[in-house]
Nucleic acid binder design. Sequence first.
RNA 1: GGAGAGUUGGCAGAGUGGUCGAAUGCGGCGGUCUUGAAAACCGUUGUGCCGCAAGGUACCAGGGGUUCGAAUCCCUUACUCUCCGCCA
Length: 427
Amino acid sequence: MLLVKYLREHTKEAIEGLSKRKLDAEGLIKDAINADDERIKLQQEKDEVLSESNQISSKIGDLYSKGEKDEAEKLKTESKVLKEKAGVLEESFTNAEARLKDILMNIPNIPHGDVPAGKGDEDNEIFKEAQNMPDNIEGVPHWELAEEYNLIDFELGSKITGAGFPVYLGQGAKLQRALINFFLDSAVKEGYTEIEPPLMVNEESAFATGQLPDKEGQMYHVPVDNLYLIPTAEVPLTNLYRNVILNEDQFPIKLTGYTPCFRREAGSYGKDVKGLNRIHQFDKVEIVQIQHPNESYKILDEMRDYVENLLQQLELPYRILKLCGGDLGTASAFTYDMEVYSGAQEKWLEVSSISNFESYQANRLKLRFKDKESKKTQLAHTLNGSALALPRIVASLLENNQSKEGIKVPKVLHNYTNFDMILKSNS
RNA sequence: GGAGAGUUGGCAGAGUGGUCGAAUGCGGCGGUCUUGAAAACCGUUGUGCCGCAAGGUACCAGGGGUUCGAAUCCCUUACUCUCCGCCA
């Protein structure tokens, strides 16, 4: 959520910035400012009435203690009238506040100056081209390999749960565990604190990081307890700091966590959902940082470099995209996407999204810090990234590393898997 | 799941209808003292909103109610603790 104050003082920049999302925000911003004017007016009226009523009440107290009951009784009726008036104003005020919030919720974050304008993924900019594209891979897609080597059973998953809930078997399961451990160990080495969070969150948390109300249909919901299965560890990890005022010297806050992620993926179909390309439950290691606003873009680059390094260690062909305005998530001001090449499908698969939300999420979270110089509290910046999401990494590993002898496991994982080749005989 | 007790500022902990945004202690910050530090002493120290400011207003787990007036009384939800039941 953006601050109205910002929209007031930087109306032109806001409209310009949002136009990169191909969004004409002029009307929305005007509405927000009008709603805010109304809110301010009502608060002033309300406070005035309350102030008067408070004064009378304390006068009544005085009169009673002096024994002047008749005077006191007279004031009581007066106070009652004021109280009713305040009640009405209070209600209008609450409504005005809600209206304002409603409008603000519908305004996405303002893209950073370097974000290219554009409508959708066709307008994303290639930030870094692939360096190590594989020679023509003669091979089969990963879902066939998964079956051939008995690594993943999609049908068993369908039987016990439903489509999009794969069962990993034998070396396939081991490979999962190896990747998770490799990612977590790397993040910890990089200074991130490992967290194991709950896999379900309450409504408040889902609101604070922005999954609600926009993405309600994308989350699994447990109605008896009104809890949501997390679509990413970002939700619990970032919410750890909901309603917190930090001291400046607590920066930087760096968190990592492995969790399964649950996504309904309503509306997805066709080739995109084949095999591991898009599934309802998948494993991911997430990195989150909470930072001083002055540092956040430097940090974003560091996070990008960190994730890039992971891909290099996995010896996968990858490229880095800078998302255009239209492809940017609602809460993000700047996002890099990492894609790995899937040799047999001959397409790019997104495996990480690294974003700076600036203060957009922090505003919803009420995540602030005390500025040392001004001694005022201000909103912190939040950032996060996948480091990394497993299924598409696995898809790419299997497809790119297949050969007649078996599927080669990248060196960096050998200590974790205890095997360097995936073989049919091992399954 | 059943019964009971509780939830107050960074922490501990007073406060059971008016003078309470809240005593006191600890912690934090600033200062005096000191070669420096500690101790001691003095001062200061929650958050949101409105306001140029003075100041106003709201917040004592969340929501609702009683009352001229609520941290304090009532209802309700959540959470914590104790006992019983069940159990990885």
